[in-house]
Design a protein around this nucleic acid. Structure first.
Length: 420
RNA sequence: GGAGGCGUCGCCUAGUCAGGUCUAUGGCGCCCGCCUGCUAAGCGGGUUUGGGGCUACAACCCCAUCGAGGGUUCAAAUCCCUCCGCCUCCGCCA
């Protein structure tokens, strides 16, 4: 969400951002509505002031005068009620439009309608060369008895899976390692609720657009979050933090739930696109300063890249185009990891700066050193998300003996084993 | 699942039964000033948040804000309804 004053002053910039992000948003109409709301607000304020003065006078008046006054008041009161209704209606329309206002993308973002306009920033690491016929993660896991698909899908439907045996240990090792790395970098580990209220999803920016993508539990008026980010933003929404508290660095762990409605029928086999997965999320709340949040963006990106390098995986870092980055984002870098079975890079991480867009929506503020209240900046990136990353790891480090060679950084979590 | 208590402008708190004197009390903390070897104490002033107006800014003015949203009323912190949160107890339970 953007600042109404900013929209007023820079309607052209906002309209351009909407166009670049492929949104159907009429900023002119929004500006008109904003003016209307302000005009009505002033009228309501004046009418309420009058009513207040009237009530005081009424309290002092005698019986006869009161009867007279009541008659006089009736018209004014009806007028006020009508104004209020009108204001409520206009405000509701405005709020609706405000939720659709895009974050202004940074100047370095490629302008384009979708991911085809993304640019590769760098490609890192060596793709594996096999002197045997490599298997896909699905083939490998099935051969080793490390996964249940058919049985799991009897239980839980399309895209369901159950990991078994050593693969479970490997998954845990990946998460433990990622968490430890983040702790080393001063992030606070936190396990967050995934069963969340609608307000948390709206505050994050997931709703209203992502409603279709989210599992709803209508009996309890709750939703299953698609990422820990929802709870992490929610934890501090409506708060005024002290600048001394910032930056707030979280390593959020949680299961994640996604309906994958937009990609029905795609990637239905295997572990690349599932409805339920495990993630360690990097999340930052920092001061409202472009240079500071840019630095955190680099840190989040570096942490993800460090993880991939430590795991011995080849990847590319992508600068996401305006049309690919989503409503609220200022800057987004996807990291795509090499999957030998696909012979291509697939997204495993997504690093985003939300600027103040998300924090404004969630009403997440802080008091700076001068005592001025400001909207914070928020950023997030994946640290690890499995099973997708687990699949990448297995495919890249498989051996001719249908084993997986364990990257050195994970061995400590697996009793020193070099192969599983 | 059942029963009860509570939610006031950073923290604590008065006010809610009996609506108007609430322009929300007092204390603590914090900020500014005075005083003062320095500090503390003392004294004086200030200190919720959001929106709008006026402005070069500030000052100032208006409206809202007593967990949130509705309602009753000339008038709501106070009365009514719904929701949210916290606490206590009973039941069930990993």
């Amino acid at each position: 969400m953007l600042d109404r004053k900013f929209i007023r002053a820079h309607a052209d910039v906002v309209q351009q951002a909407a166009v670049d992000k492929g949104l159907d948003l009429d900023v002119g109409a929004l500006v008109d509505l904003d003016a209307r709301v302000r005009q009505l607000t002033e009228q309501v304020n004046n009418a309420q002031g009058a009513r207040k003065r009237f009530a005081k006078e009424f309290a002092r008046a005698d019986e006869a005068r009161r009867a007279e006054m009541k008659v006089e008041h009736e018209t004014a009161d009806e007028h006020l009620k009508a104004l209020r209704d009108e204001l409520a209606q206009a405000t509701a329309s405005l709020d609706d439009l405000m939720l659709q206002t895009p974050g202004i993308p940074w100047e370095g973002a490629p302008v384009g309608p979708d991911e085809s306009a993304n640019t590769v920033v760098r490609t890192v690491g060596e793709r594996p060369e096999f002197d045997f016929e490599p298997l896909s993660h699905v083939e490998l896991f099935e051969q080793r008895g490390w996964v249940e698909f058919a049985r799991a899908r009897e239980v839980a439907g399309q895209r369901a899976y159950a990991l078994k045996g050593d693969l479970v240990l490997l998954e845990r090792a990946i998460h433990s390692y990622a968490l430890d790395l983040m702790i080393q970098r001063s992030f606070t580990p936190i396990s967050v609720p995934v069963l969340v209220r609608e307000s948390a999803l709206t505050g994050t920016g997931m709703f209203p657009k992502g409603r279709e993508e989210t599992y709803a539990l209508p009996a309890d008026n709750l939703y299953l979050a698609g990422t820990a980010e929802v709870a992490l933003v929610g934890l501090h929404s409506n708060e005024i933090l002290s600048h001394a508290d910032l930056p707030l660095l979280y390593a959020g762990t949680s299961p994640c739930f996604r309906r994958e409605i937009g990609s029905a029928g795609r990637d239905v086999s295997g572990l690349l696109r599932v409805h339920q997965f495990e993630k360690v999320e990097q999340f930052v709340i920092c001061e409202n300063d472009d240079a500071i949040s840019a630095r955190w963006h680099e840190v989040l990106l570096d942490t993800a890249e460090t993880i991939l390098r430590d795991l011995g995986l080849a990847y590319e870092v992508v600068e996401c185009a305006t049309g690919d980055m989503g409503l609220g984002k200022y800057r987004m870098n996807d990291i795509n990891t090499w999957f030998p079975s696909l012979e291509k890079y697939r997204e495993t991480h997504s690093c985003s700066t939300l600027h103040d867009w998300q924090a404004r929506r969630a009403n997440l503020r802080y008091r700076d050193a001068e005592g001025t209240i400001k909207i914070a900046h928020t950023l997030n990136n994946t640290a690890v998300a499995t099973p997708r990353l687990l699949a990448a790891l297995a495919e890249n480090h498989q051996t001719a003996e249908r084993q997986i060679s364990v990257p050195p950084v994970l061995r400590g979590y697996l009793g020193g084993r070099e192969l599983i």
